[in-house]
């Protein structure tokens, strides 16, 4: 299951979405997330769907890559759905047994919540799949630059993020190996009460932490050897500069957000 996390997995390509300035994509992801919580009713839902399909189409990343991220949060989604289903009060009772009540409103809420979560994951994975982590952090760094004036270490934080993203797949693989190796020594990660299981994780977690520290140490040295001395005086391979395409994307995003808000407050 761990292997299915799509976060931070860049999918190489040459689509217009790939070429967008990362700041646009960050903004876009933000706009989309906001829109998911703003929309209400079938029209808003349709607009959000059409917009998502449109973006997916032009970014040329196979659809299954986007859905992969969903597997990791299936449990969260199930919980959300169940809670919404049973805990939404309403007038149209569909089903009633003891303390369990399902209402029409509950069904609707659960359905919309599921849709929101799905769209959220798929929507943000469009951003991570079309932007290399380095671009992403470059974008973040530049977008948050003003904060460095008040002492926020923007460069350091963005560098940390980009490295974390690079190492996620490596650490996942390592977890898999350590787990198997301990199982080869008779370890049991699958049975027992919650406490027993937590205790059984020690043989997995200790080596994993040690390895992560060792890697961090190595990496720090490798960076130093390549003359890394923080953000001062660095140049960029891809300096961020807005192109025509980026302005177009901004306009499109704002139009979309406007549309969602309009539908929410004036139609429904």
């Amino acid at each position: 299951m761990l292997r299915d996390i799509t976060l931070g997995q860049y999918y190489p390509g040459n689509s217009p979405v790939h070429k967008l300035d990362p700041r646009v994509k960050l903004f876009g992801a933000l706009v989309y997330i906001v829109s998911l919580f703003v929309f209400r009713g079938i029209l808003g839902f349709l607009l959000a769907t059409v917009f998502l399909i449109f973006v997916i189409k032009i970014c040329q990343v196979p659809f299954r890559f986007m859905v992969k991220g969903l597997k990791a949060i299936v449990i969260l989604m199930a919980f959300t759905a169940v809670f919404n289903l049973f805990l939404t009060p309403g007038e149209h009772v569909l089903f009633h047994y003891g303390i369990f009540t399902i209402t029409m409103e509950g069904v609707k809420n659960a359905a919309f919540m599921l849709i929101r979560l799905t769209y959220l994951i798929v929507g943000t994975s469009v951003m991570t799949l079309t932007t290399t982590p380095n671009q992403l952090t470059d974008g973040l760094e530049k977008a948050l630059k003003p904060l460095s004036k008040i002492g926020v270490p923007v460069h350091a934080v963005s560098m940390m993020m980009s490295i974390a993203l690079r190492f996620i797949p490596i650490l996942i693989e390592e977890t898999d190996i350590i787990m198997k190796a301990q199982m080869a020594r008779g370890a049991n990660f699958e049975e027992g009460s919650l406490i027993v299981r937590a205790k059984n994780m020690i043989p997995l977690l200790v080596p994993l932490f040690i390895s992560a520290f060792r890697r961090a140490d190595d990496l720090a040295m490798a960076m130093e050897a390549r003359c890394y001395e923080g953000g001062e005086g660095r140049t960029k391979m891809r300096p961020l500069k807005y192109q025509g395409l980026d302005y177009g994307a901004y306009v499109l995003l704002l139009a979309y957000l406007g549309g969602i808000i309009f539908l929410r407050f004036f139609i429904v």
Binding site: P133, S162, R166, C227, Y228, M237
Partner: peptide, 18 residues
Amino acid sequence: NQIIASVVEEDVGFGPEN
């Protein structure tokens, strides 16, 4: 443990950037 970037060419560019 010495490749910093998630794309080959970006990693090679890391030194010159610094």
